[in-house]
Design a protein around this nucleic acid. Structure first.
Lengths: 271, 271
DNA sequence: CCCCCGCGTTCCGGAAAGCGGAACGCCTGT
DNA sequence: ACAGGCGTTCCGCTTTCCGGAACGCGGGGG
């Protein structure tokens, strides 16, 4: 089912050892970390092979990262991502002062619509979801393969791109990859959709990333320099007939109200 | 109220530039990251001052970490923790195959007791909570200052230390710091409590970390080498009278059942 | 309005640090 | 028992990185 939705794969991992920057050791250390995005456990030999560096170098990198707490040793001498990364990651999100502000509105919206509600921000040309409240009764916290989306095929990405011409350029340069038969891959059509998004104040994505699933998104804005500027987006995702069918007006209304509420609360929180 | 509960502060940050390891640049890069545990935004000058390194060095470190995505540039030329850290952190927790397995049981337990339920693991001599379901109706996701606890004063830490003599040694070496008038700081009494924890199969902490709040914890075990070995713990935290008063037997029973269920599910998941 | 201070960044030479190749134990699977 | 693979260590050469000083800029005070 979700075999189609392979994660977009990080840029330039697995290729040559990396180059374009000072501090070569730090760059390779980051590249080593990146190796663990794909595999849960790695040893020095695997890492050395993937990055094209000497085994001894890989071993030192792993050891250094482990003493720093970014990696942990598993019993068998291999390594995995360390829990200190979890702490740092939580701090990174906390400091956006976004999740805490948005959670109440997200909970209410989920209750109102009985659908999954997501809070997404932009990272590069991808959308990263920093919080999600699941629709169904039970908590199935979102798994890694659904934590990041290409911006062009998600409603969240569109609502953010609609107000950012530079981002649109970057997205088009990267190319509109097709994920389903419905994915919009024509640049002209994509720009039309963005224009429509600007007019409406919300965006939709009809089964453009995963068959059967659609989403709507509304921007969370922050007033910068007099004009409201989107910094994140709230989105509702669900089975197409449930979110884009007869209930669509209700979904849109609830979504826009929730996004407006979060925007106001965020404005207040950033005193 | 929570002024007492200062986070335990990471080891060896803010001192000399770090030393005991090969790969000096990587070590200092990690030290640079650590600087951001305390402050949300930092520039080259501040970092250089904190670590006792040259300003130029700090600048290169920041730039390298930023190109790696571990840091992000804020508008004014300063830096903050990057969202890639959030991704790595989520991956690190996902790969424990713990949170997903535990969430259903945690939700049920919260419904049953109407109290906050936590899932904690050990990192060094601290307890790190990787998931928490809040008691009250609404989601106030746990803030950074309550995401990490010293192991000696928390029920979770005791349930984990009860089965790990080496950990007890480490905890005692570090010292039993006092947080409230009720914190157990006598090593002998601490060992007695651990013995009692071993007998009972669960641990308690009566206002030993924050006045008014107490907790109970039960171990999540994994059979390794024939014997069950605790790898995490479920805990219930609430106002003392509500969790250690007349309801205590019910809390203990629910907690133990939930922990047993998670242990069984975890055993099954690690096929 | 201009100046000055402080910041982040860049440049450069000396020198220490890290890279790679090969050798060493250890565990596993046969 | 043996052999293959792993993570780790050692060592010399060379590369890369550190620190100090200079640069450009932006903001706040005179």
């Amino acid at each position: 089912m979700s075999v189609l939705s392979l994660p977009p794969l990080d840029l330039d991992t697995g290729g040559p050892p990396e180059d374009d920057s000072p501090l070569r050791s730090v760059s390779t250390a980051v590249a080593v970390l990146d190796c663990f995005a794909d595999e849960a456990e790695l040893g020095a030999t695997r890492v050395a092979a993937r990055l094209g560096i000497a085994k001894s170098t890989a071993c030192r990198m792993l050891a250094a990262l482990a003493t720093g707490g970014l990696l942990e040793r598993t019993g068998s001498g291999r390594y995995r991502l360390g829990l200190r990364l979890f702490e740092y990651g939580q701090l990174a999100v906390d400091r956006l002062m976004l999740r805490d502000v948005a959670l109440p509105a997200m909970g209410d919206l989920r209750e109102l619509l009985r659908e999954t509600v997501q809070l997404g921000v932009l990272v590069g040309t991808d959308v990263l979801y920093v919080e999600r409240t699941e629709a169904a009764g039970m908590n199935v916290r979102f798994r890694s393969e659904h934590r990041r989306n290409p911006a062009h095929s998600s409603s969240t990405g569109r609502v953010l791109a609609a107000a950012d011409p530079a981002l649109v350029t970057a997205i088009l340069e990267r190319g509109l990859r097709r994920y389903t038969p419905f994915t919009v891959v024509d640049p002209l059509r994509y720009r039309q959709i963005l224009a429509q998004t600007r007019e409406q104040g919300y965006a939709t994505s009809r089964e453009e990333f995963e068959p059967g699933w659609s989403s709507l998104a509304a921007p969370i804005t922050l007033t910068r320099g007099g004009r409201p500027h989107p910094v994140a987006a709230l989105s509702v995702v669900g089975v197409t007939s449930r979110v884009l069918g007869p209930r669509k007006p209700a979904v849109v209304q609830g979504l826009r109200r929730a996004a407006a509420r979060v925007s106001a609360d965020l404005e207040r929180a950033r005193s």
